[in-house]
């Protein structure tokens, strides 16, 4: 039994790492920012952490903090042009940002190890650390979304005019969402670095961007459990059906097309919505019958 569980430990670690990235993506989308920058910000965090530990000999916890800070600060800088853009333009600009990070990582070989990347990062992060990080992340998301910030994010995403007319500062809230998302991506980038001995620039490119987006879209964009469901399904699926692992790209592609067209709210959001509708109609039926029974008695 223990052996079976241990066999799945690497998969569980991967799940926790990707879950953090998924939440980074989820949070900005929830605040109505059409950013795809998570992967680039994760690269910033990963390299900050990796370089601090390997080249400068910093202890891992300090490097982790620095990575979160770096992710947040870069996101803050990025938010200046992003605030001026809308929709599609934000998506394009953030994809360009990923490209800039990617090519700078390759170019600055002296610092980053170039195309070969950084090697020999001491492994200081294990399942327990990742689990704690995961729990803290879910709590943070829950706290944010049940506070005035979450209410403001939801309003901005659905209708900017309404949000502004109710006193919500759109730019301030979107910047905040983006900076938190950046710090989260930076943190998980560094966790990834400290978990896997080596870093390569190509890790933080299009395939990863697509994976992270797929987790969020498949799971659901408007509930906290959405990214958990999406990440779990997309990571477990190839494990239970080996042929799917070889055609991972095809599976992601087909799923994206199908989900966007036929289940646009994602699995978790759709199920939660259905459950709520059932509960409400049951309650409505009860309140309809209540007066009649009262009259009879």
């Amino acid at each position: 039994m223990t052996n079976v569980l241990l066999g799945y430990q690497p998969l569980f670690d991967l799940f926790l790492l990707h879950l953090g990235m998924a939440y980074s993506q989820w949070l900005v989308l929830r605040a109505g920012v059409f950013s795809l920058a998570t992967v680039g910000l994760a690269a910033v965090g990963a390299y900050t952490g990796g370089i601090l530990v390997v080249t400068l000999g910093f202890p891992a916890p300090v490097a982790l903090l620095a990575a979160a800070l770096a992710g947040g600060i870069v996101a803050l800088g990025l938010s200046v042009p992003l605030a001026r853009l809308r929709g599609v333009y934000q998506a394009i600009a953030t994809v360009a940002f990923i490209q800039i990070v990617l090519s700078l990582n390759i170019y600055a070989a002296g610092l980053t190890g170039g195309p070969q990347g950084l090697n020999g990062i001491p492994k200081t992060v294990g399942t327990l650390t990742l689990l704690i990080a995961g729990i803290l992340t879910v709590y943070l998301m829950y706290a944010i979304m049940s506070s005035r910030l979450g209410r403001a994010f939801d309003a901005i995403r659905q209708n900017e005019a309404v949000a502004a007319s109710l006193g919500v500062s759109i730019v301030r809230h979107q910047t905040l969402a983006f900076v938190i998302s950046g710090a989260l991506a930076g943190t998980y980038g560094a966790l990834e670095a400290f978990h896997s001995y080596a870093l390569a620039p190509s890790q933080f490119a299009f395939p990863f961007l697509i994976a992270v987006l797929s987790y969020v879209v498949l799971g659901g964009r408007n509930t906290i459990i959405g990214p958990i469901i999406g990440t779990a399904i997309l990571l477990i699926l190839p494990e239970i059906a080996r042929p799917l692992a070889e055609a991972r790209m095809l599976v992601y592609g087909l799923l994206l097309i199908l989900v966007i067209n036929y289940l646009p709210r994602g699995i978790a959001d759709t199920l939660i919505e259905r459950a709520r509708a059932r509960r409400l109609s049951a309650r409505l039926a009860k309140s309809d019958t209540a007066p009649t029974t009262a009259a009879r008695s």
């Binding site: 709590y139 943070l140 829950y142 706290a143 944010i144 049940s146 506070s147 005035r148 910030l149 209410r151 403001a152 939801d154 309003a155 949000a163 109710l166 006193g167 919500v168 905040l176 938190i180």
Partner: peptide, 21 residues
């Protein structure tokens, strides 16, 4: 929730308090 957002103007807890619950 549609009404809750209407109170936004009067919510004054700090951003940190809101973030950390």
């Amino acid at each position: 929730e549609n009404i809750l957002i209407g109170f936004h103007r009067h919510e004054e807890c700090s951003t940190l308090a809101a973030m950390l619950g």
